[in-house]
Design a protein around this nucleic acid. Structure first.
Lengths: 153, 153
DNA sequence: TTGAAAATGGACATTGACATCCTGTTTTGC
DNA sequence: GCAAAACAGGATGTCAATGTCCATTTTCAA
């Protein structure tokens, strides 16, 4: 139900948040997120156009998040690459359903609304600080501490 | 986020429920639901293989629901044509995430779970008897009464 | 100044969703 | 039995999502 591109974009953003504010290269992100590099670069370009990430060419360059991870919701990321299209008018074009959807499309739109709300309430920072779960993109929980040390070298 | 095919399948099933237990031809369904007939026939075939509908060839034939509308959930319909794939294991294949998803995939799976639950709780019959909304696939609420009369001619 | 690192953009391949068409098969009514 | 109604299934076409490749541009540092 979620496209591959959405999954890839979220992985990339989580990786960037995990390393913020250090810039990361497409190569690094690709390796860690297991997203094919050429395609990842397209996804990142897309995120750039939508002002989710900023990129810097040349040596020492790379990609960084525009916002702080605790101010960036996953809804913003999803909507940048593949907007959640709520159902506003009757898909069949029935005029009498214009303002009031029929129960079928009401239910479908409700489902979309639930997902939208859930994603709007979740920041990227929360993905990294969750107590119970394992750490995104990392094989071993121990790796978190390791990265924290390594980050500012 | 929902595929065209899912939308088509739901329209067809709602139409069939609205006319149950009378059989409807692909032509009738296609006209009412605005689904292209050749493609609709594929969708119906698919629903047939998944035991959601039963079809009868020949003069006077057509398609009918296998279950009563109040016993058929829209989740069953959706899962027949395009199963909601919950996230059970880490998409990156990280072994340590095997049983416990990382927060990212937890959130994504939660969204899927919400949709799944919502669809599981909704029967096709509910689509037709909703008090407030307009009637599915019908331009005018009055048309409901008309069809009720016409149904058993 | 020059070379290496890195993103950018355009062109191209692949795949699956969506859609159409045609032929065959089953069923009914005469 | 025959003709018409209706679904079944295979072959094919189209397009967007996904994925790849390469030349170009930008940036930094030696």
């Amino acid at each position: 139900m979620f496209s591959q591109t959405v999954e890839y974009a979220l992985r990339a953003v989580v990786f960037l948040a995990d390393h913020a504010p250090t810039a990361c290269t497409t190569d690094q992100i690709s390796t860690a997120t297991q997203v094919p590099k050429p395609y990842l670069s397209k996804v990142l370009q897309n995120l750039g156009r939508n002002n989710i990430v900023r990129s810097q060419r040349g040596i020492g360059g790379g990609v960084t998040l525009v916002k702080m991870p605790n101010e960036l919701t996953i809804l913003e990321v999803v909507n940048a690459v593949e907007p959640i299209e709520r159902i506003h008018t009757c898909p069949l074009g029935l005029k009498s359903h214009g303002t009031q959807l029929c129960p079928l499309h009401q239910r479908m739109d409700e489902a979309l609304e639930m997902v939208e709300k859930s994603f709007k309430q979740t920041t990227v920072a929360e993905m990294l600080s969750e107590p119970g779960g394992s750490h995104p993109l990392c094989e071993n929980p121990k790796a978190v501490a390791y990265k924290q040390v390594k980050k500012r070298q």
